[in-house]
Design a protein around this nucleic acid. Structure first.
Length: 439
RNA sequence: CGGAGUGUGGCGCAGCCUGGUAGCGCACUUGCAUGGGGUGCAAGGGGUCGUAGGUUCAAAUCCUAUCACUCCGACCA
């Protein structure tokens, strides 16, 4: 992408409404624009990141055996009346009526709808287990939206729902998601620790919140130092290998990790790390709460009707954009992990009026794009300083700085945003280096 | 919902107390110079002062209503 032709409205000054780093940086980097309280437009740069995160989530869900569907944002109130939550949900639910005065709502979650989808076609134990997910916009009319996309009213969420015949099978489904979540967050370049969570009004005995460690996070967390060295991706474990998966789960859940509400100093280990974090995922098993209320049953081997065991699992996709920034930024701007970066390489043309310099930039740009890299070429007339500041702000992992002085020597500067490390390299070697490192 | 604030060009703000026909910085346009970490000089463009009423010869400024947004608190993926 050529910056001169892109829509990237970066800001030099901090917008006054943004209090925390990720919100401030997303506005300054031209990723989002607020249209109403807690509702945002995703501008080109922001959307690129959102899509990357979404794709990482999707990939691991598929790997775990879940099937993607897409449920509508607008739901009929009928299903919610059936589960009893239409009255229970309160003002957080955005209620609307259609032209025939039917009661509708903008979905805050999908347990009712998915249960209806399940029961309408699945009638036999032979069809179990099932795990369906979708990545869709939700709306919760928060009392007080804040922190930009981290706590918006409209948000993109991956939610899935498992259906099993027995409690033991449901445990397996739960553990699969536990692992899938760990792998998903690791693939994004962030560290998310599963912490025992309150199951709240939904109930059930198994529930974990996945919390990204970030010093600027919103809640206090206490974790065993052992988490830092633990294998969090279950290297080599197949989702269908129950024994191995269970061992992995037992090993991890035996390590201490708690938010301040759940923190118990008396039972905490000595080597405790006290830091802050942001919840980016939540998994729980809630047994038969919805299947019971909505009559989701299958026949077992004996022909008896059995109410299915359910679990639900959420990842805050849009929230992750903010969370990743909270965990990866400095005073100059964002430092994207490569897996979610909007572009992997930025090229800075220090002197657009210099023909050779511009030619070298265009040439490298074309080559890198051909090699499959996503490249942002700053071909504007701005000064070098402006370009450096902008590139740091939007956090492109690799920056190639090309100017007449270096070109005389046949070199360009390669800068790694995450560390600030710079080195002079030859123009010829850069393609190879970047294809290897930034791919 | 309780408490506290803010709405003036794209962004950040001054002006309001003490009414007199709107200003500053950044950004933008043009020209010249410049070109290795937010460049200098010069000339420009852009504003229903959130909205609606009212007071007044005259309202960004005073009064009333209303809308939006932000922050603190209870609540949350």
């Amino acid at each position: 992408m050529r910056l001169s032709q892109y829509y990237l409205p970066t800001l030099k000054e901090d917008p006054k409404e943004a209090e925390i780093a990720s919100h401030r940086l997303m506005l300054r980097a031209g990723m989002i624009k607020q249209t109403s309280s807690g509702i945002y437009v995703w501008l080109p740069l922001g959307l690129r990141v959102l899509k990357k995160i979404e794709e990482i989530v999707r990939k691991e869900q598929n790997a775990s055996g879940a099937h993607e569907i897409l449920m509508p944002t607008i739901q009929s109130a009928d299903l919610w009346k059936e589960s009893g939550r239409y009255d229970a949900y309160g003002k957080e639910m955005l209620r609307i009526s259609d032209r025939a005065d039917r009661e509708m709502l903008y979905g805050p979650t999908n347990e009712e709808m998915i249960t209806d989808i399940f029961r309408s076609h699945i009638k036999s134990y032979k069809s179990l287990p099932q795990n369906l997910y979708h990545i869709q916009w939700k709306f919760r009319d928060e009392i007080r939206p804040r922190f930009g996309v981290m706590r918006g009213r409209e948000f993109l969420m991956k939610d899935n729902y498992s259906f099993d015949l027995t409690k033991a099978d449901a445990v397996h489904s739960y553990q699969k998601m536990y692992l899938a979540y760990l792998r998903t967050f690791a693939a994004m370049g962030i560290q998310a620790i599963p912490m025992k969570a309150d199951t709240g009004p939904i109930g059930g005995d198994m529930s974990h919140e996945f919390i990204v460690l970030a010093e600027t996070g919103e809640s206090d967390v206490f974790v065993d130092k052992a988490w830092m060295d633990a294998d969090l991706t279950g290297d080599g474990i197949d989702y269908n290998n129950r024994a191995k998966l269970d061992n992995f789960y037992q090993a991890l859940t035996s390590m201490y990790a708690a938010t301040d509400e759940k923190h118990d100093p008396d039972n905490a280990p000595d080597n405790l790390i006290h830091t802050r974090g942001i919840e980016v995922g939540h998994i729980f098993n809630f047994g038969t709460k919805y299947s019971e209320a909505m009559n989701a049953k299958v026949q077992d081997q004996n022909g008896d009707m059995v109410t299915v065991e359910m679990g639900s699992y959420g990842i805050g996709v849009s929230r992750l954009v903010g969370a990743i920034i909270e965990a990866n930024h400095d005073d100059d701007g964002i430092k994207w992990p490569e897996a979610v970066a909007p572009f992997s390489v930025g090229i800075i043309n220090l002197k657009p009026s210099d023909r050779d310099c511009t030619e070298a930039c265009n040439d490298l740009y074309t080559k890198l794009e051909k090699a499959g890299l996503e490249v942002l070429l700053d071909d504007t007339e701005d000064r070098g300083g402006t370009k450096f500041a902008n590139m740091d702000l939007i956090g492109i992992p690799w920056q190639v700085v090309i100017g007449p002085k270096g070109l005389e020597q046949g070199t360009v500067e390669l800068k790694k945003r995450a560390t600030g490390e710079k080195k002079e390299v030859t123009l010829d070697s850069i393609l190879e280096m970047l294809s290897g490192e930034a791919k």
